[in-house]
Simulated scan of single mutants.
Amino acid sequence: MDEIDMIRQRKMEGLKKELEKREYPAEPLEVTDAAFDEFTARHTLVVVDCWAQWCGPCRMLSPVIDELATELRGKVIFGKLNVDHNKGTAMRFAITSIPALLVFRDGKLADRIVGAVPKQKIIQRLQPLM
């Protein structure tokens, strides 16, 4: 491999990493019943925050999810599912307490975190899956 090929390869790797990062937004995306399966299967590691407008602990956890979406950009994609508006998914995953974080790895449910847990606890649970 000559020098030009090496430069070309490094440039391609950099472009690929930048493209992958763009696919991971710096904020959680809204998820609905209709798009749920596509959303969870699209990326390697997905966290869906199941919440409701009236839920106090959900409102407490929301800024933490926003921070994590920014900090873990490129590694984890975050979504928000309003359980009042998307009852099908809530029933499918037996969401009986909120907030509930559903963690998907390669499109399959890998973990479930229930309650307004601290940011570090969420990171600890996600680390083995990254």
Rank of each mutant, 00 (worst) to 15 (best):
R105Q: 13
D106W: 00
A100K: 04
V76S: 04
D84L: 14
N82F: 08
F93W: 14
L81E: 10
K11M: 12
L15E: 12
C55L: 06
K17A: 10
E18A: 13
K16H: 10
L45Q: 05
Q127I: 09
G79T: 08
W54D: 13
Y24D: 15
K75P: 04
H43F: 02
M6I: 01
L29I: 08
V47I: 09
V47G: 07
R112P: 02
A94L: 15
G74E: 10
D111Q: 03
A90Q: 11
R125S: 11
K121H: 03
R22C: 00
F78N: 13
L68D: 06
G79A: 07
H85Q: 13
R92P: 07
E3V: 03
E23K: 14
P28H: 14
Y24I: 07
L29Y: 03
A52T: 06
S62K: 02
E30Y: 05
K11W: 04
A35T: 13
M91W: 05
V31N: 06
M6L: 15
H43N: 12
V76K: 03
D66Y: 02
A94S: 15
I113K: 03
L29K: 10
L68G: 07
L81A: 01
K21I: 01
Q127C: 01
E38Y: 08
M60P: 00
G14Q: 12
P25I: 06
W51G: 14
L45P: 05
G88A: 12
